[in-house]
Structure formats: structure tokens, C-alpha cells
């Protein structure tokens, strides 16, 4: 009886030891990974991108019904406001038509002035449309994932636009997926310029909804409501992309910016392939621009 009992006991202890060991081993591995992630960003990002490529079709499928339901709800809501919306749109259209006339005139003037100065145009950017399939914002991360990647021409560092202006930039481009770091994220730093006063600054996210203007020259006159656009410094973003407007100056002296884009409602985005224009200047006609 005792003889038969013993091996099973030994097996049990062996199992327990293996179990304990696995816990310690996994814990140490995980800790080591955090260190590696802190030190070697590139390698970790490459691994992340691989995993995202696999997960994106799944997420795409899961987000599809959710988006459909949200759209249907939106449709019903819009239907009830159709008349009013139509009236507003008609008025806006009138105003925009006037703007268009002004824009055409300025365009012609601009073109003739450029010809006078023999100015090299900055080129045109290629836009890549993408659908947001995952909102991977956590408590301490502000990021989104989209269903396009290197196969579509997306690369690290490219600017991401919503309907109105800058939303973030690509930080991790996989083959068929990419991760966007929103401008509100703790790690986001964007060179910007105040549109009217031409003061340069850095827009730094801190995970709140209103990123902060940093490195402002001392005694800068800050006007609430002034528009903030990208400055193009550093060559990462094209200059002049609308980012937001100054929302408030806190008692502590922080200048807070309200992003022009509602970052919590992004469903479709455009990725700007800016790098392309550095190499060649393709003469692509943009709508309304007669060369």
C-alpha cells in the first residue's frame, strides 16, 4: 500500500514545484519584457505590429456590427432634425460660396506671386483613408488602431487627420494595421504655431482632453480662441494642419488647447503621406486649383 502511495506523492510534489517555478519564471519574464520595452522600442514595436496584424481582422469584424448600430441610431436622430439641418446647411452654403469666390481670387493672386518669385511649391500629399477598428485607449494611453498598414503606404510618423484637423500620428505601422497615438496622449509632442501671432510652441499631451502648450516664449500674449496649427518644424508633419484652439489659461499658467477634432468620436481618418512629397513633387491637380 505504501509503495503504491509514494510515487503519486512524489508526482504531486513535482507538479507543485513546477507550478511554483512557472509562476516565478513567468513573472520574471514579464518584468524583463517591461524593461526591454523601455529600452528597445523598435524591437518591441515590431513584435506588437505583428500581433496587431493578426488581431486586426478580428477587431474589424467585431467593430463592424457596433458601427452599424451606432450609424442606425444616428440616422434616426438625424431624420428628426432634417428640416432644421437643411435650413442651416443652406445658409452655410451661401456663406461658403462667397468664401469660394474669395479663395479663387486669392489662389490666382498667389499663383502669380509665386511665379514672380520662382517659388518651389511644397508639393502635394497623398491621403490614405482608414477606418478606426479599435479604441485601444486605456486609463493611461490615448490611442486608436486602424485597418491599413505598410501594404497601403502607411509608415511611422505620418500625420493622421480626422474630418476637421490633426488627430494624431502613426506610431506603429504593421503590414495591414497601424496604431495612432492621439495628440492627447502623455507621449505626444507636436511642434505647433499660433496662427495669428506666429508664436511657436510644442503641444504636449497629458492624457487629459485638453493638451498643454509648452515651451512658449516668456511673456507671450495668449488670446483665448486663437487657432493652433502645425508648424512643420522637425519635418514630421506638413505645416498648417489645424490642431485646435486655445481654450483657457489655468491659474497655474498652463495654456490649454481644445483639439479641433472630437477625438472620442473618430470613426474614419485620413493618413497624410507627407514623406512622399520630399522626394518628388508630383504635379497632381487638387480640386479647384487650376494650374
Amino acid at each position: 500500500m505504501r509503495l503504491r502511495y509514494r510515487p503519486s506523492v512524489r508526482l504531486q510534489t513535482l507538479k507543485t514545484v513546477a507550478h511554483r517555478f512557472s509562476f516565478a519564471l513567468l513573472l520574471v519574464t514579464a518584468l524583463a519584457l517591461t524593461m526591454v520595452g523601455k529600452v528597445d522600442h523598435l524591437m518591441v514595436d515590431a513584435v506588437r505590429a505583428r500581433v496587431m496584424d493578426v488581431a486586426i481582422p478580428l477587431l474589424d469584424g467585431l467593430s463592424q456590427p457596433a458601427a452599424t448600430i451606432a450609424e442606425m441610431a444616428e440616422d434616426v436622430r438625424e431624420l428628426s432634425e432634417l428640416r432644421r439641418a437643411n435650413e442651416i446647411l443652406r445658409q452655410q452654403n451661401l456663406i461658403l460660396q462667397q468664401y469660394q469666390i474669395a479663395a479663387r481670387r486669392l489662389e490666382a493672386e498667389n499663383l502669380s506671386l509665386r511665379q514672380l518669385l520662382n517659388y518651389q511649391p511644397a508639393g502635394h500629399y497623398r491621403y490614405i483613408g482608414a477606418r478606426v477598428v479599435a479604441d485601444n485607449s486605456g486609463a493611461y494611453v490615448r490611442s486608436l488602431a486602424v485597418n491599413v498598414g505598410r501594404a497601403n503606404g502607411v509608415g511611422n510618423g505620418q500625420a493622421v487627420l480626422g474630418g476637421a484637423g490633426l488627430a494624431g500620428r502613426i506610431v506603429q505601422a504593421g503590414e495591414r494595421s497601424a496604431r495612432i497615438l492621439l495628440i492627447t496622449d502623455l507621449n505626444a509632442r507636436i511642434p505647433v504655431i499660433m496662427e495669428a501671432s506666429r508664436t511657436r510652441a510644442i503641444l504636449g499631451g497629458d492624457n487629459s482632453n485638453r493638451p498643454r502648450l509648452e515651451h512658449l516664449p516668456p511673456e507671450t500674449a495668449v488670446r483665448i480662441g486663437e487657432r493652433i496649427v502645425t508648424s512643420g518644424t522637425g519635418g514630421l508633419f506638413p505645416p498648417g494642419l489645424p490642431v485646435g484652439e486655445i481654450a483657457e489659461v489655468t491659474p497655474g499658467g498652463d495654456v490649454r488647447v481644445r483639439p479641433i477634432e472630437d477625438l472620442s468620436r473618430l470613426e474614419q481618418v485620413r493618413i497624410v503621406d507627407f514623406q512622399l512629397s520630399r522626394e518628388v513633387v508630383p504635379m497632381v491637380a487638387t480640386p479647384g486649383f487650376n494650374r
Binding site: A30, L31, T34, G138, V141, S143
Partner: peptide, 9 residues
Amino acid sequence: VLTGGLLGL
């Protein structure tokens, strides 16, 4: 990996 947080944490 999915959230882009610190890997392993």
C-alpha cells in the same frame, strides 16, 4: 500589445 501600454506590465 493591443492597448499599446508598457509591454509586460
